[in-house]
Write a protein that binds this DNA or RNA. Structure first.
Ligand code: FES
Ligand code: FES
Lengths: 141, 141
DNA sequence: GGAATACTTGACTATTTTAGTCAAGTTTAT
DNA sequence: ATAAACTTGACTAAAATAGTCAAGTATTCC
């Protein structure tokens, strides 16, 4: 089980952006340089974040991106959702009554994986971008 | 983030095996048929489980595998460890002082991913094979 | 002893996913 | 006008996954 770069970068980039929240737009070029993420890849990611209304774009020179909501209101869940980084522990389709083995009942481990998925998603539901910025701020003292 | 088949199958197969704990060895062929897992793949998995002393093999006709420890003492952590299904949320090396971006300090999200990793591993540390067998047993009534 | 069952090992491969790159635009501040 | 910066879509190399395949060894039962 591992976290993919897309999810990691999305959160990393937003954490960078959130530090300048409401001051001025941050260009992807700056994020790219500061965080060491490919500019082209960031563009892909921010295109998705914009579609899900997590960020707003400001075009033209001195443009960039700004948060579209308060940092406190942006949970990791929202970010992961936007970039399609999803937690997937079940093999079967959750809605279906069939099991992952093709049989008519759920497999021996179905409930276990379902619990695991909830356990992980709980973490993402709780953490906001704001928590992240604050914990980094405190780290400096 | 998703669970791989190797980890899923390892737990599924052991859950099947645990139901016959101390009665008689269970052949991989039976597990393969009941759980719908490729026999060749199961062999790979059980080879690893045997090396980590989670199961014992019984050769010959009527042979198979039996648990090497009490089901209560086999945690998911042990199983995942044996088959190399590891939780990996950090990009950087944990011991190193360098960040994932190659810089000399840890990145903005490092602590967050570290927390996440612990959160997930807690789940695996708590759950035992025994819990799994019992919850399936109860399900029948 | 011979056949059948079942474990054992190692190498090999197709498919899928990931992590990007590349190219050709459009928009806007200065 | 020009440069900075967003926008979109297609493409691709590399890695990981999920197995398969082949050849062999050990043990029990008849
Ligand atoms: S994971 Fe849902 S039935 Fe196996
Ligand atoms: S994940 Fe450890 S420094 Fe970024």
């Amino acid at each position: 089980m591992k976290l993919t770069s897309k999810g990691r970068y999305a959160v990393m980039a937003l954490a960078d952006l959130a530090r300048f929240d409401n001051i001025s737009p941050v260009s992807l070029r700056d994020i790219s340089l500061r965080q060491g993420i490919s500019l082209d890849y960031l563009e892909q990611i921010f295109s998705k974040l914009r579609k899900k209304e997590i960020v707003q774009s400001v075009r033209g020179t001195q443009g960039g991106y700004i948060l579209n909501r308060k940092a406190r209101e942006i949970k990791l869940t929202n970010i992961f959702d936007a970039v399609d980084e999803k937690v997937k522990t079940l093999q079967c389709k959750k809605e279906s009554k069939k099991g992952c083995n093709g049989k008519s009942t759920k497999c021996l481990t179905h409930n276990l994986w379902d619990e695991l998925e909830n356990h992980i998603n709980n973490f993402f539901d709780k953490k906001s971008l704001d928590d992240l910025v604050k914990s980094n701020f405190e780290r400096k003292f």
